[in-house]
Write a protein that binds this DNA or RNA. Structure first.
Lengths: 67, 67
DNA sequence: AAATAGTGTAACATATATTTTACACTATTC
DNA sequence: GAATAGTGTAAAATATATGTTACACTATTT
């Protein structure tokens, strides 16, 4: 479950801890999402999108071929 | 959890049952997603996107204000 | 009026996401 | 070299998504 969360977070100059607080998600969960080890819920995806000012496509889209 | 799955499905002339078969998701789950009663996983969202040829943004984006 | 297609939904079981708590590891700083 | 910040991750508990089975309802068709 590859994504661009880490890149977007760094662009916002946020630590995992800070992103966790702003999203209401656990730091551990964010770490796992960034490492691609999770299949997050749409709600979590949107929560992250809002904080880092990116769209679902920008953060979570995966081309069919790479899926 | 509002979305545009039903619209996209009808545009493809698919019944819930047919979409279920093509995505490998249960018809019941698709029904609940369409009714906005679920918080689907990213994987399910992508599975649906691929079948109806729409992006995550097109099917599942929700503006922060409407969230 | 029975039969069928399409959909909504409820109950229960199961899988899995998410949290909680905790520890390890690598820099960096004092 | 202790202290701290940032991150990865493991185990257990909990919440919730998803599947399974089943039934109800409407509309359409025969």
């Amino acid at each position: 479950m590859k994504n661009n969360v880490k890149l977007a977070r760094l662009q916002m100059n946020l630590t995992q801890q800070q992103l966790a607080e702003k999203t209401g998600i656990t730091r551990q969960t964010i770490s796992l999402i960034e490492k691609g080890k999770y299949n997050p819920s749409l709600k979590l995806c949107l929560d992250i999108c809002y904080v880092v000012n990116k769209s679902l496509n920008e953060l979570f889209w995966i081309d069919k071929e790479d899926y």
